[in-house]
Structure formats: structure tokens, C-alpha cells
Amino acid sequence: MNDSVNQPKFDPVTATPFLTSRGHPGWLGMRYADHGEDWVELELPWREDLLGEEGQQVLASGPILSLMDMASGIAIWKAMDRFEPIATLDLRVDYVRPARAGAAVFGRSQCYRITRSAAFVRGLAHDGDADDPVAHIQGVFMKISANVKREVPRG
């Protein structure tokens, strides 16, 4: 997958479809929307079966948390410019207003600081206008490479 001369850069445009093709992100139907140097935006298309309350056309909060977790992970890989295993340590979501019925929700996360062992993110979710967010998030992720062996199954 990596060409020799140009070291493999992490490209959210090509990596996101792969990362969201299956598992939880695939089940939610997340897809790439936009990115910058240290931020990534993903789209969560509207789905009738993800409501937070019976009979109310309001998206549940769980999918927004998932969207922001995923956007944050990809933003961190973009900021590091490579893929390496990371795990969410702490994630806070403030739901400032309900998302509009029938609207896709966009999750934009920025990795504003990376240390040897941790990556720090902040971001927002919106339903079309980033100046009128539905949620704000803040989180910390840990790198889980090399020196951490406790979770590695045998083999």
C-alpha cells in the first residue's frame, strides 16, 4: 500500500471509506465530508431507526458520540500523518440542541496537541451550519503501541 519514495501520508479521503466500511462506523453509515491539516469532518446520514425517543423525530445522542469519537480518531491520524493504534481515554459531549429531524449530522474534530503518549481533541457536531452546532466535544486519546502489552491476546 505504501510507495517507496513518498512516505505513506495519512489521507482522510482514502482512509475514511476503509475505516468506516464495517464494524460500528459501518453500521452507522459514517462517511468522509471534509478535512484540514489537523481536523476531519465526517457525515452521519439521517436514519429513522436511530431516534432517541419513541415518536419524536430527534436523533439519539449515542450516534453523535460515536461520530465524534471516529472523527477525532481520524483527525489524530491526520495530525500525526500516519496510522497507529489509539484508544479513547476520555470523551465529553455537550448536547447544546437537538439535531433537526431528517438532517444529516456532521462531526468535526480537531487534534490540537499530540504528546509522546496522548492526543488531545476538541470539536463540534452540526446539522448543516457549523456556526450553529448541535454538540461540542472535548477528548483525550492514548497511543496504544509498543510498550503496552496488557491487552494483546496471545498469538
Binding site: H24, P25, G62, P63, L65, S66, M70, A87
Partner: peptide, 22 residues
């Protein structure tokens, strides 16, 4: 199940969060 999977053979942080919230 696959709907909760993140990196292979592990729960996705979002799915764990969804269970907690629920």
C-alpha cells in the same frame, strides 16, 4: 456483534458510550 466493533475484536468507543448512555 459487528455493529459494536471498532478495531478488530474490540468494542468501538462509540458503542461502549451508547451502552453507558442507554
Amino acid at each position: 456483534v459487528e455493529a459494536v466493533e471498532g478495531r478488530p475484536e474490540h468494542f468501538h468507543g462509540g458503542a461502549t458510550g451508547g451502552l453507558l448512555e442507554t
